[in-house]
């Protein structure tokens, strides 16, 4: 590095590590860019996307539409697939060189593999699995702080919501759960600066080799479904769960389930809604036989309209529902299906 160059001690820049697989960005990266755009407006800083891979220039340019003002592009055949050492070394060097104020990662397996190494090397604060981010002026231990990043996350098995801050450190890092931030592309004419950063391979990288890789495209796209009918342990059996499928079919929706329903084998994990599953925000979410533990609510409470069907009138799910039906699903669901079919006639 040129020591003559003056480097700002702290910038107001918000960085997003753009996670890609075979040149396609993970949704969460675009979600984070949209959020960062809002955060950076408050802070008066710029949004920078960090795109690491091979032949990913187009992807770097695509990030402008989601809010990036500048894309830092590191493109090299040795970076084609995610590997911990070359990716972390690259990002560590960039952070040291440019001193971003905030660095965000998706809380995916890649993000959770990469972010701790970067934070460890740069001695930055890192908060895992955030579900919300805000910028605020706060007072902490009788000191005033301007424009701190509030990192909000469930803690203690989801029983509490904690707000974490990184008050006295120049760099604030966080991983953020998929699906909790809204994503919308801006007009395609939005342009930014593309900055190519050279990559120097290191022989140490070769101590790790990927022998084979298997990835199945997820055929279920709960996130995009406008109507979701979701069943819980209250359905009591896989046989009874068929009614969930039937109602979903009649309404033109997708089938989902709570963790308890997945654990009981009523439905595969790829259809699980909640903290350890997918976060959804459909037009209509019908929760059947789901008590509404915080872990489940975290994955669906942003739904536009929620109908809860449960035998227990005190089930927490009613607390976040718009419509509540107290009754046995085995009676309510057939009635719902019959009445709806009649209305369509």
């Amino acid at each position: 590095m040129d020591s003559e160059r003056t480097i700002p001690a702290v910038s107001n820049d918000v960085w997003v590590f753009v996670e890609q697989r075979s040149g396609k960005a993970a949704d969460v990266s675009f979600e984070l860019l949209c959020k960062s755009h809002k955060l950076a407006q408050v802070m008066g800083g710029a949004v920078k996307s960090v795109v690491i891979g091979h032949q990913v220039k187009e992807l770097a340019e695509e990030t402008f539409r989601y809010g990036a003002d500048e894309a830092l592009l590191i493109d090299h055949p040795g970076l084609k697939q995610y590997r911990t050492l070359p990716y972390s070394r690259t990002l560590i060097n960039l952070v040291r060189q440019f001193n971003p104020r905030i660095v965000l990662f998706g809380a995916t397996i890649i993000g959770r593999d990469l972010a701790p190494r970067v934070a460890s090397a740069t001695r930055s604060g890192l908060t895992a699995d955030c579900t919300d981010l805000q910028i605020a002026d706060i007072s902490y231990l009788r000191k005033e702080y301007k424009q701190l990043l509030l990192q909000i996350r469930p803690a203690f098995g989801g029983n509490i919501i904690a707000t974490i801050i990184t008050p006295d450190n120049p760099i604030q890092m966080a991983t953020v759960r998929e699906g909790v931030m809204e994503m919308h592309a801006q007009e395609s004419s939005r342009k930014g600066t593309l900055t190519s950063i050279p990559y120097i391979p290191d022989e140490l990288d070769e101590v790790v080799a990927i022998i084979e890789q298997h990835r199945e495209e997820n055929h279920v796209n709960l996130k995009a479904a406008p109507i979701i009918v979701s069943g819980g342990y209250g359905l009591r059996s896989k046989e009874n769960f068929k009614l969930i499928h039937e109602l979903a079919h009649v309404l033109g929706g997708e089938v989902a389930g709570s963790r308890a329903a997945v654990d009981a084998g009523f439905i595969p994990h790829e259809r699980q809604v909640g903290q350890t599953g997918v976060t959804v925000r459909p037009k209509l979410y019908i929760a059947v036989g789901i008590s509404g533990a915080i872990q489940h609510r975290a994955g669906m409470q942003e739904s536009n309209k929620i109908i809860a069907i449960n035998t227990d009138p005190d089930a927490p799910i009613f607390g976040i529902s718009h419509y509540g039906i107290v009754g046995d699903a085995m009676e309510v669901l057939p009635r719902f299906i019959e009445v709806y079919k009649n209305k369509l006639k």
Binding site: G158, I160, I161, P167
Partner: peptide, 15 residues
Amino acid sequence: PTKVYKVESVVLNSG
């Protein structure tokens, strides 16, 4: 570097 600024129990606006 990270500090817990505040914790809240999960409040339900029931009813």
